[in-house]
Simulated assay, not measured.
Amino acid sequence: MPPFKFPLLAGATALLLSLAPLVAQAAAQPLAEQLQAARQEGSIWTAFALNRHLNPFKLDIAVEGGRARLSGRVESAVQKELAERVALSIDGIEKVDNRIEVDEGTAEGEPPTLVQRLEDATLTATVKSKLLWNSNTRGLDIQVESQDGAVTLSGRAQTPAAKELAGQLASNTDGVRELFNHLSVSTADSSASEIEVAAEEAREAISDGWITSKVKASFVYSRNLDALNLDVETKDGFVSLRGSVLSAAEKRLAVDIARNIRGVRGVDADALLISD
Rank of each mutant, 00 (worst) to 15 (best):
L132D: 04
A62L: 08
E233H: 11
L228W: 12
G92F: 08
E81A: 09
V86N: 11
K214S: 15
A26D: 12
E201C: 05
G109F: 12
E200T: 03
A254K: 11
P3L: 00
N55T: 05
A188E: 15
S76Y: 02
S76L: 03
A68V: 09
Q143Y: 02
S154A: 04
D231M: 08
V78C: 02
A26M: 00
A37C: 09
V215P: 12
D97Y: 02
P21M: 03
V264C: 12
S89K: 09
V232G: 05
D236Q: 14
A87Y: 04
S89M: 14
D141M: 11
P112H: 01
V144E: 02
G155V: 02
L272A: 02
T137C: 14
G105Y: 10
L230D: 06
G167M: 04
T187C: 01
A258V: 09
A24M: 10
D236V: 01
E64T: 06
A14N: 05
A121M: 04
D103Y: 09
V144N: 01
V232C: 08
L19C: 07
G237V: 11
E145Q: 13
N260C: 12
L9R: 11
V185K: 01
A162Y: 06
E233S: 15
L246C: 01
M1N: 05
P160Q: 10
M1P: 07
N172S: 15
G66K: 09
W133T: 00
F48I: 04
R265E: 13
P160F: 07
L131W: 03
G266F: 06
E110M: 05
N229I: 02
W210L: 07
T159P: 09
F180P: 01
G92I: 13
N260L: 15
